[in-house]
Amino acid sequence: MSSAPIAPVTVSDAPLKAPRETAAGKAKKRLTSPWASLFAVVLAVLWTLPTFGLLVSSFRPQRDIRTSGWWTFFSDPQMTLDNYRSVLGTDQAGGLGDYFINSFIITIPSVLIPVTLAALAAYAFAWIRFPGKNILFVAVFALQIVPIQVTLIPLLTLYVDGGIAGTFWPIWLSHSIFALPLAVFILHNFMKEVPATLLEAARIDGAGHVAIFFRVLLPLLRPALAAFGIFQFLWVWNDLLVALTFAGGGNAVAPVTVALANLAGTRGNAWHLLSAGAFVSIVVPVLVFLSSQRYFVRGLLAGSVKG
């Protein structure tokens, strides 16, 4: 994916460099190649094996998981979907179906709201002149470093006083608030890269700030919005702390991360539920991630100080 633009370079370099290979070049090759490859393979295996083991386990019958290691699956392959069935159900204990839905209900507005608000704010910071702009921008930027732990208890009090505790609203609002400083910063940087002449031309044509925002900037900003949107999606989907603080543990509001964490705490040996549950929760972000790796990396680089 990300190596697509690099591949042609490698190909075109190879015939040029091959004949000019020096003694040092050969030495480098001899030094690095076999051991390097071996070491890389060892690392790759070490990094993959834990996930693979749990994935295999999630398809094994409950009894087998308890009595033998997942590697025995290859000598005695017993497969079942029962674990996934009980995890996706909503009735019996250990069913994560409701929590899974809650994760979606939590995540969608928690991405849409901050992205939209931040786009407006970033536009104001980038292209409108008003007194106090620089100070406000630095202030918003600096708020990135506030750890969310510092805000949780007073926020919880505010939500209780406002009568919305125990609903989705505290989680939507909190995720939106925590995302804003970073979102404004990223989108502002992208907006600044749009050539001023484009905006001037639109203004001469009689476009106001609303028309410019929608017709000129928004189409150009799509990659930036996607980068931040994906970053925020994964952040919210994978969050535990915010959900734990504002959602409680019940199936009315809590997302799948909370349910899994509680399951690990109360039934730490129920590996048939934990393994299948973990993969149900993993599959969504992994799909999002694989389908948008490039955007995600960009968001990740820009968002390095968030939290």
């Binding site: 996930t51 994964l234 994978n238 991360t257 899994l260 973990a278 929760s281 972000p285 991630f289």
Partner: peptide, 12 residues
């Protein structure tokens, strides 16, 4: 592993 939640990673 970056796409996986910390909770998921901990269970793994």
């Amino acid at each position: 592993p970056m796409a996986i939640s910390f909770v998921g990673a901990s269970i793994i």
